[in-house]
Simulated scan of single mutants.
Amino acid sequence: MPLSQDEIDSLATRLYDAYDEKEPIPPLSDDTEITTEEAYQIQFEVFDRLSAGGREEVVGHKLGLVSEAKQEQLGIPEPIFGYVAHETVLENEPVVVDEMISPRIEAEIGFVLDEDLEPPVSTMDILAATRAVVPVVEILESRFQGWSIPSAQDVIADLTSAGKVIVGEQHRDVTDLDLKMEGVAVSVNGEVEATGLGADIMGNPARPVAWLADRLDDVDDHLREGELVMSGGITAAIDMEPGDLYSIEFTNLGTMEVRAE
């Protein structure tokens, strides 16, 4: 049975309160059956409450579950997406772990668009419309207790596990890179903990961005000039601990360092 608007509002309030008070809650699916469409409705309501200007504060989009293995694990046949709010972008500052519930760090490849895109959109269209490719570090966050994520719908509703975003200074022309072969290694205090390759992202990081450009039409949205699109985690997410130094070294997109306090 579809959720009523009151039920969607109530679930959005639970997630908003967890975000605002930094107090994790049980997954929504523990006691409520939620469709993918309803999960996005909840997400959009939570985002609008958290951002003063609602979706006017969007600086881009983020993708998740961009591997078939993760999709199969959570029982959904496609990636998932969310918004990147201006207030979540960090500028040359450490990640304060105590200000979050349970942050995790991962590396991504970002696309800065040079034009608006309306569906249908192909991978080649994304490459042609990309102003620059940038290195991105995402600090994931879950509002659920112990990172318990029993369904894709829980992740979607929970802002697609959005936390903080750090964009590297290196901007490269897409024609200068072999995105499939762009590698990255994440080290913690000098020890490599996670590695990945652009080809791990649906064969090419531009491919999920093209999927997103088409999928956004279902929610009356589209990709816009100047937006940042994060193509999904290349590496496994690593728990962050105060005092640790994280080095994120890309093959051609430079090296970023993030300190946790």
Rank of each mutant, 00 (worst) to 15 (best):
M1A: 15
D6K: 14
D6T: 14
E7L: 02
E7D: 13
S10I: 08
R14P: 08
I25W: 03
P26M: 11
P26Y: 08
E33H: 00
T36F: 05
E38Q: 12
Y40D: 07
Q41L: 13
Q43K: 05
E45Q: 13
V46F: 02
F47V: 10
F47S: 10
D48M: 09
V58C: 11
H61Y: 13
G64A: 11
L65F: 04
L65A: 11
E68Q: 11
Q71I: 10
Q73V: 04
I76M: 10
P77K: 04
P77A: 13
P77M: 11
P77R: 02
E78S: 14
I80D: 06
A85Y: 01
T88L: 06
E91A: 09
N92R: 13
E93K: 10
V95E: 02
E99M: 10
M100V: 08
S102D: 15
R104S: 10
I105T: 05
A107C: 10
G110N: 10
F111T: 02
F111H: 02
L113W: 00
E115W: 00
E115C: 03
D116W: 07
L117E: 03
P119T: 06
V121S: 05
D125V: 07
L127V: 14
A128T: 11
A128V: 13
T130H: 04
T130W: 02
R131G: 15
A132N: 07
A132H: 07
V133Q: 03
E138M: 03
E138L: 04
E138G: 05
E141L: 10
E141W: 05
R143I: 06
R143N: 13
F144C: 09
F144Y: 15
Q145V: 07
G146I: 03
W147K: 08
S151A: 13
A152T: 06
V155R: 05
V155T: 12
A157M: 03
A162H: 07
V165N: 00
V165A: 06
V167R: 04
V167E: 04
E169H: 12
Q170P: 00
H171Y: 10
D173K: 12
V174Y: 07
T175N: 14
D178G: 14
L179D: 05
K180P: 00
S187A: 15
S187Y: 15
V188M: 08
V188Y: 01
V188I: 09
N189F: 06
N189K: 10
T195K: 11
L197S: 12
G198M: 04
A199Q: 12
I201C: 03
I201M: 00
M202N: 00
G203T: 02
P205H: 04
P205I: 04
W211E: 04
W211V: 03
W211S: 07
L212H: 01
D214H: 07
D218Q: 15
V219R: 11
D221P: 00
G226I: 03
E227A: 02
M230R: 07
M240F: 04
G243S: 08
D244F: 05
S247G: 12
T251M: 13
L253H: 09
L253D: 13
T255N: 12
E257W: 00
